[in-house]
Nucleic acid binder design. Structure first.
Lengths: 154, 154
DNA sequence: TATTGTTATACTCTATAACTATA
DNA sequence: TATAGTTATAGAGTATAACAATA
């Protein structure tokens, strides 16, 4: 080999991602993106985004919940919820009723149509859960949930 | 009780989130947000966002990597990478050198300053990993990574 | 003809300030 | 004075179309 040849810029054949793959944050993010992507595509069948599903599901399990309570539970800024609620109401999936104790607030409730839609969407969500964890045993799935909770619950 | 009184709208005292908490996607998303939030705040010390750290780290471990390879590895659209690369170059953290085999492409390399910064940032990343998994044993941490990989690796 | 890198641009998501009606 | 809901708006993140240079 000629000794005066300057070190050539090397080309990367195969990208080495092993360092990033050693980080819990990287793996958690990748797994979340895969699950959310499937969730996004399947919920689109019902005209819902993941956040719409979360909102409707919380209303289903908490009839009379207020916008403020939704915002706190889902970490949504109040101005960003207004449009969602309006749209769900225009689609006649939810109704607003006066809050029993607080004249400023409105209690949110599902309509019959809304209840039917949430029921279907939750079946789809269960199927998505099965698909996402198809390579896990039932025990591994429980373990995964426990370990994830240990990370985000203080 | 008067029989003609219409059923009053009920108020929700405590929001029941148990249904959402039963979904793997919800738990993965929550855990990811907690980790990424800490990551975001700590990397800001170096003037980096999480994505900048990923880009610099991939260049560090793959000297000569191209923009296209970065985009593929990190699921970034090429137009959205241009600004990041320009900024990292303006900060003199990276340099662009001609690709040895492909006249269209440029190989990306860290400068001495860039190498120093990545070294520091990776120490911080290791500390963040420890903080995020402080409630997990070493075995549990390994288990978590394996289970997450089973979800996102096909 | 296909691909790398780039510009311009649009769309979504998220965040803040300020207002009203009520507590 | 503080809070629920709302409006307007700004910023960040992400996506597509189209182009020049090279393969």
């Amino acid at each position: 080999m000629a000794s005066r040849t300057p070190a050539p810029a090397t080309a990367v054949e195969q990208v080495d991602t092993s360092y990033l793959e050693s980080l819990v944050g990287y793996n958690a993010r990748r797994a979340t993106l895969v699950i959310m992507d499937a969730f996004f595509r399947q919920m689109a069948v019902y005209g819902l985004r993941p956040v719409d599903f979360s909102v409707l599901s919380l209303i289903a399990h908490n009839p009379g919940i207020t916008s403020r309570q939704l915002c706190t539970s889902l970490s949504i800024q109040p101005p960003n919820l207004v449009g969602m609620i309006n749209q769900l109401q225009r689609r006649e999936l939810i109704t607003r009723r006066p809050h029993p104790h607080d004249g400023r607030a409105m209690g949110l409730h599902l309509t019959a149509t809304g209840k039917k839609l949430v029921k279907q969407a939750e079946v789809t969500a269960a199927e998505l859960e099965d698909q996402a964890t198809v390579r896990l045993t039932a025990t591994e799935r429980r373990t995964l949930m426990q370990l994830l909770r240990k990370i985000y619950i203080p």
